[in-house]
């Protein structure tokens, strides 16, 4: 594994970044990694862009901010935010897992700013990066019972992508520990849907 392995989880306030970085970091810590998570959540409830930087190393604890061009994996809950993270932190070897459902910024809603054509944006990201896995996590989350578990679908996709040196079972045991009892079944299902979706996309790419 590359050391440190740098992962960005990015989206819009309210999409549940923090829970995802917590699950991922706890899973990696359980595998013996020295983990650092940097979070920006000051105005996160207020619809701004939010991202978490997660850094895994066997050697030492890294700082909470990934240097420019050093992100290896980008998990985007929203296409424009994935692109923003890629532009700031990605490199040609980076791998991207992406929920293609747009969340429009105020500037776009109110007018004056244009939201890019998602297909074209994804095409650009594909050309620039090593791999882009599209996961319809909002739809899959609705299947699991509530669009809000979109974030857990993405955790499943990350586990299913094989990008991380963390086995599926470690993820599921962390989810069992951090998710409240009443929502557990839905979250487990969301995780599995994401996991299977990532496996399917990867299979298709191979075929």
């Amino acid at each position: 594994m590359k050391d440190p392995l740098n992962i960005v989880i990015t989206g819009v306030g309210g999409q549940g970044n923090i829970l995802v970085s917590e699950i991922l970091a706890k899973a990696a810590a359980a595998e013996g990694f020295k983990v650092t998570v940097g979070e920006s959540y000051g105005l996160s409830q207020r619809g701004g862009a939010v991202s978490s930087h997660i850094r895994l190393s066997q050697e030492f604890q890294y700082g909470a901010v990934i240097p420019a061009g050093h992100a290896d994996i980008i998990v985007g809950f929203e296409p424009v935010e994935a692109a923003r993270a890629a532009a700031a932190l990605g490199h040609p070897g980076a791998k991207i897992i992406l929920n293609p459902r747009p969340v429009y910024p105020v500037g776009v809603l109110i007018g004056g700013q244009a939201y890019p054509d998602p297909d074209e944006l994804i095409k650009t990201l594909k050309e620039m990066s090593a791999e882009v896995l599209l996961i319809e996590s909002s739809e899959l989350a609705s299947l699991a019972g509530d669009p809000v578990v979109q974030n857990i679908v993405m955790v499943g996709a990350l586990a299913g992508s094989g990008y991380l040196p963390v086995p599926q079972a470690t993820f599921t045991s962390v989810i069992n520990a951090v998710v409240p009892e009443r929502a557990l079944e839905m979250n487990q299902q969301a995780f599995q849907l994401g996991f299977d979706a990532a496996c399917a996309v990867k299979e298709k790419a191979k075929a």
Binding site: V12, G47, G48, R84, A87, V106, V108, P116
Partner: peptide, 11 residues
Amino acid sequence: LVEKIPPRDFA
């Protein structure tokens, strides 16, 4: 890529 990305102001 950068050209395509609109800013996301607080809301």
